[in-house]
């Protein structure tokens, strides 16, 4: 009898641990909205999906590289990550002394983030999906016209070293998602669909010699400076780049 009881306890514990391992997700109800960079029809329709509540943490990423050795700092190839990949870590499996296990994993390339998500049966969010969830504040799904929302984001851009903060330290938005603003920038699946040329002076003119059909892409909401910054960052990234304040989360 005793042994059966113990077994039950063990099974319950295992189940609990297993459930905890899979990072929590919330479902996002789809809808239609106009992103900063509209396309022909200007409206984008998002279908229902699930999103990670928090960005992927150092602890999550540590577990990932201990299993997938090709993403260890010493093993990663230069095709997939630049030299600053996980550069703040002490070794392949030890994070930096001033880093928290509960802080967002940063200094990871798009290739690594992409593989992380697919190893969990998930994927990176598209820009449109990410922006759709990120335009919410605590109470409204679309807070882009609210002054305090924009001010909050812009004040974050001025705050130094927020990447050291632990996940969940910013606000929970309308969709019950944390940390979209205020912690780190995040990779998106199709970050390379932002067509601005490298030279900032050229961004005013769409360079039709470099980009086929680039005239179709123009900012629809120039007031939304915060979003403008995000698109600018995405436009300047290459997939193997890694940055101290660039992390990611997955969707399904």
């Amino acid at each position: 009898m005793n042994t059966i009881c113990r077994l039950k306890v063990v099974i319950i514990l295992l189940w609990f641990v297993g459930a905890n391992c899979q990072s929590a997700m919330v479902s996002i109800k789809g809808g239609t909205y106009t992103p900063l960079y509209g396309v022909d029809s200007l409206q984008v329709t998002i279908t229902d999906f699930e999103m990670d509540v928090y960005p992927v943490t150092n602890a999550d990423y540590l577990a990932f590289v201990s299993k997938r050795t090709k993403w260890r700092r010493s093993k990663v190839i230069s095709l997939f990550a630049d030299k600053s990949y996980l550069s703040k870590w002490v070794s392949d499996t030890i994070i930096g002394a001033d880093q928290s296990l509960k802080a967002a994993a940063t200094n990871v390339s798009w290739f690594a983030a992409n593989d992380y998500c697919s190893s969990k049966g998930k994927r990176l969010p598209t820009i449109d999906e990410w922006e759709y969830v990120a335009m919410a504040n605590e109470t409204q799904p679309d807070a882009r016209t609210i002054e305090s929302y924009n001010e909050y984001i812009l004040s974050w851009y001025e705050k130094p070293k927020t990447f050291n903060s632990e996940i969940g330290s910013t606000f929970m938005n309308y969709w019950k998602v944390y940390d979209l603003h205020g912690l780190v920038w995040e990779w998106t699946e199709d970050f390379n669909s932002v067509l601005v040329s490298g030279e900032s002076r050229k961004d005013v003119d769409t360079d039709s010699d470099l980009f086929c059909g680039s005239a179709a892409i123009n900012a629809t909401d120039l007031m939304n400076y915060a979003a403008f910054m995000r698109y600018a960052i995405r436009g300047s990234l290459k997939a193997k780049y890694t940055m101290r304040n660039l992390g990611f989360r997955c969707v399904k």
Binding site: L79, N192, V194, L195, F211, K238
Partner: peptide, 9 residues
């Protein structure tokens, strides 16, 4: 495309 640094939408 990411390897080639080609952008597309």
């Amino acid at each position: 495309a990411n390897v080639l640094a080609v952008k597309y939408k």
